[in-house]
Design a protein around this nucleic acid. Structure first.
Lengths: 97, 97
DNA sequence: CGCTTATTTCAACAATTGTCGAAATAAGGA
DNA sequence: TCCTTATTTCGACAATTGTTGAAATAAGCG
């Protein structure tokens, strides 16, 4: 959850989503984002660690891709645990009947 | 998005969701969370500002409630903008036809 | 092997966020 | 009005996160 809490990382992730299955190299991403390579690398790791982004080596370049299943799981968690509907609100403790 | 990026705030929010429409007073929340009143107040503000939580005064106590519609909007945003399915992946730039 | 490109790691520092206790404010009751 | 309860604001400091340039590592090519 903290991974996407940073505006910079959310932007990186969205950029990768828009790139689709093709993915983007770290270098291309750097051009898009306009930040130091080390900074970008730092943020990418924070997306790769929890599995939101995967990396694949192609010779000397690393291709990054958004991992939709992990994002879907996150969305599912939010929907289930953090967004009760009227039905679950009915599970509230109530005095007597 | 940053609002829920903090583990502490996510915990506060989830606690409020579980409390349902009844909500919880700041004081009760303080007992649950075990932190200084000022710290809690600080985090609550960061949930109230973006509208994730609403507050209602009842005499000297403030009742906090999770605002599901705002959360649903957030989930919708994530689903739409950040979690492309195969169909939208097909919108990728492709060379020729 | 030495060279080139691509990316990460390292070390330092800036900026933001989290935390707290003490004092201030809000609401109501004696 | 003065007192009590409930919460926020303030001021300070600790902890985490973000940022960078320089050096290290990875992969492949002459």
């Amino acid at each position: 959850m903290e991974s996407l809490g940073s505006p910079t990382r959310l932007r990186i992730y969205r950029t990768l989503v828009r790139a689709g299955q093709t993915g983007l190299s770290v270098g291309t991403l750097q051009d898009c984002m306009g930040m130091a390579a080390s900074t970008l690398s730092h943020h990418i790791r924070r997306l790769v660690d929890p599995g939101l982004v995967s990396q694949e080596r192609v010779a000397t370049t690393l291709i990054c891709r958004a991992e939709y299943p992990v994002m879907r799981a996150l969305i599912g968690y939010l929907a289930d645990e953090c967004c009760a509907d009227e039905a679950s609100a009915g599970c509230q403790t109530k005095i007597s009947a």
